[in-house]
Design a protein around this nucleic acid. Sequence first.
DNA 1: CTGTTAGCGCGTTCAA
DNA 2: TTGAACGCGCTAACAG
Lengths: 349, 349
Amino acid sequence: MRGGATQPAVRATLEDVARAAGVSLATVDRVVNRREGVRAKTVARVEAAVAKLGYRADVAAARLARGQSFRFAFVLPAGSNSFMTNLSEQVQRTAEWLASQRGFIDILHVDVFDPDVLAGALDGLSSVYQGVAVVALDHPKVRDAIDELTARGIAVVTLVSDAPSSRRLHYVGIDNPAAGRTAATLMGRFLAAREGKVAVIAGSLSLRDHTERQFGFHQILSSEHPNLTTLPVIEGRDDSERTRELTAALLKRRNDLRGIYCCGAGNRGIAAALEASGRARDVIWITHELTQHTRRFLVRGTLDAVINQDPGHEARSAARVLLAHCSGEPISPDQERIRIDIFLRDNLP
Amino acid sequence: MRGGATQPAVRATLEDVARAAGVSLATVDRVVNRREGVRAKTVARVEAAVAKLGYRADVAAARLARGQSFRFAFVLPAGSNSFMTNLSEQVQRTAEWLASQRGFIDILHVDVFDPDVLAGALDGLSSVYQGVAVVALDHPKVRDAIDELTARGIAVVTLVSDAPSSRRLHYVGIDNPAAGRTAATLMGRFLAAREGKVAVIAGSLSLRDHTERQFGFHQILSSEHPNLTTLPVIEGRDDSERTRELTAALLKRRNDLRGIYCCGAGNRGIAAALEASGRARDVIWITHELTQHTRRFLVRGTLDAVINQDPGHEARSAARVLLAHCSGEPISPDQERIRIDIFLRDNLP
DNA sequence: CTGTTAGCGCGTTCAA
DNA sequence: TTGAACGCGCTAACAG
């Protein structure tokens, strides 16, 4: 048995360092927090003591003493699909966690699909907020609103949907082209050598994430699975009924349809159409976001794979990034990278 | 725009509640922490004030006042494979995070594959530890050692590898049969209708997790993909060179080999044998754990899919569970469930 | 049964 | 350039 580095049972305090260095609390504090007004010689003495005792600041006590607290706004879509409802719940849970770190979250529900409304909401945001997380829209007005917030000194992170050309601090969400490529690889491999058509259903091609997914999907499918060709993209507007009709028509029209990739919402419509057609087990269907619905379709065998982003991770990551930024702490990007999850019936959480 | 529930900018303190209820700090403290010795009527008054002000305790300040700190031991395998090295690093990072919560982690490296050594290490653990996380072995001696720790009042969580019959508090790791089923589904679908043999390579069948994975794999493959039959399990002892030899022999012997499922380590050996045989792109290879090596094989196309458990999540989850248990806080099991990740070349993090 | 008081580790005046 | 002293929100010992 090899013992690891045993840490001291209880951490050294500022006072321990002060005693070891033969100076006062305040002096150690100045050195530790890199403030002016200490002789170089004293600095050296204190730093030596810090190193010797392995002193590490107690951030909780520091925040307590500073009386520091944070207030963030989360701007989320109003009355939307299952994924967004989940996201909302996860933000709520994150808020409870954050409260124990002296951080407070207000949730604002707005129609994020209307650039004017979204930009207006951002413009109207009070300056009590030190940070904002927003499900963005890649539109000039929204970009300007984000830049304006940034100019006012409010940190902005985009959540799930990015506005890359804006001056947001950080994007919390998946790499959408990569998600599309992942879907394509699964589609191509599940269909193996079979020949035929693959349909792509998006909510709207004016949504950046849908376009990016579709782009990644096409890229891999055309280059690596030439036996499969994609049909023109169908826009279901994330509406189940409309998507059902379009899918039903498609199934009727094309006997050579082998697969469906849905890069938006409206999954209940696809399931209904597939099951009504009797080709549910034959046509490979891959979609995004694990919800109560897609989980059911997966278990039932109608749906073959789900590409997922974890709304809980996303909510917590957004909060952590804002908190770290406001406390002047560094953020480690690879720690905050949102994974592209793949769920089959067998690895459902 | 619909506004969400706006929280007060700054939280109510114990003192605010005391003032509102017309009692002293100590009384509020007693009520809030459910201690004895307060008249029912007073309790009610205080609780009303708590509710009215939306009071929530500042856990950081509480811990500070309590002078409470925690000390945990993490017992990990000595000098082992890439996955275990990653796990070790992640435990180290978790230790740094925990230090800011007044928690301290000592890492002990022992030969966890020898039940006597592992049990001895657990038996010898000092009582300064309030909790232990251990990569366990499902063996009577180890189980007894865990039960003994539990009897001494030390909380034990098993990490990555469980000892289900013991009295451990919690298991932090993936559902291994489900992981095996996931691998089988991928194998079956990637091979589609092709007929042939699939090899299963385990480290050792006396390792519970390897057996469970292999069980899940067989279960799905035999029931859902009758075109594929599995060969007798090969035990590579998680050793690359031995695994390479066995794999090379297998490839030479069987022209009808279509897939390899490796439910243990030794991946470098499999890659070498596959690439030397010239059948790397033809034989579907699925394995466990994303490491620097498996990542490379995936990108190169030799490896087709990786079933992964995130060592960072596992390390943090173990720490959170121990911390919560020692602070008397509840743990939410679904929050702590470790996901079965699937990685293809396209969704590598 | 209830209130008073002295810290926990740190940041921040204000004095020296 | 340095130090002493107070307070952040809470707990715990002691007093009433």
